[in-house]
């Protein structure tokens, strides 16, 4: 298994995330139609098209550079809240990866913690508010815990993906307090948050993407 994440491994993770989200975009839009305006899947699909293009166009073989390009491309995709939140996520990772050729498990945890911090700077949403934060916080905490236990990056990412999935599922019983869904109040009960679901798909895609190319 990969002991460290270099440029090629990161590209596999990014492409894995894009593939996972893209194949599920209709499901995301259905969730959003129930509690938002139904365009989250379309916005995420657009964001992932930008991600894939940014990865293809980036020939730097530099971790920070490809993450920064991906973040900027997703920001540029707009899409309401999707662009700013997911864009800053990748730009936060990129900043943490600056000057590093590879990320070991601890550095990977740091990069995800920086990504989470960048997102939290943009939104006042707290865990329990039925947003992407409800999947992102457990994913990053799960990854950190796995690293502390001595797991390698691939195993730690699997753990993060599981935690994100549970976090996303937990939003089903929450009352939305942010975004357009907030205005629907109790009508949001029973449907998981589309943004949290996207985070869960992205982490599963990271894990799958890394595993797919691993030896």
């Amino acid at each position: 298994m990969a002991e460290t994440i270099g440029y090629d491994e990161m590209v596999r993770m990014l492409r894995g995330a894009a593939e996972k989200v893209t194949t599920q975009h209709e499901m995301l839009s259905k969730l959003d139609a129930a509690i938002g305006d139904g365009d989250h899947g379309t916005a995420m699909r657009r964001a992932m098209v930008c991600l894939v293009k940014a990865v293809a166009d980036n020939r730097s073989r530099d971790l920070a550079s490809v993450l920064n390009d991906v973040g900027w491309a997703i920001l540029s995709a707009g899409g309401g809240s999707t662009g700013p939140l997911f864009g800053t996520f990748f730009m936060g990772m990129g900043e943490a990866a600056a000057e590093r050729a590879t990320l070991d498990a601890a550095a990977l945890a740091e990069a995800f913690e920086a990504a989470l911090a960048a997102v939290r700077k943009q939104t006042k949403a707290e865990p329990g508010d039925k947003t992407m934060i409800d999947a992102l916080v457990p994913a990053v905490e799960g990854l950190r815990a796995a690293v502390e236990e001595g797991l390698d990056p691939a195993e730690a990412l699997e753990r993060a993906a599981d935690a994100a999935q549970q976090g996303a599922a937990s939003t089903k019983d929450m009352l939305a307090r942010f975004g357009k869904a907030k205005n629907l109040g109790r009508r949001t009960l029973g449907t998981p948050d589309p943004g949290a679901t996207s985070v869960s798909l992205i982490f599963r895609g990271f894990a799958d993407g890394l595993a797919a190319g691993g030896t």
Partner: peptide
């Protein structure tokens, strides 16, 4: 101008 009912990106 953004997409339908969605804000444009910060770079624009």
């Amino acid at each position: 101008a953004g997409e339908i009912f969605a804000a444009p990106g910060a770079p624009a």
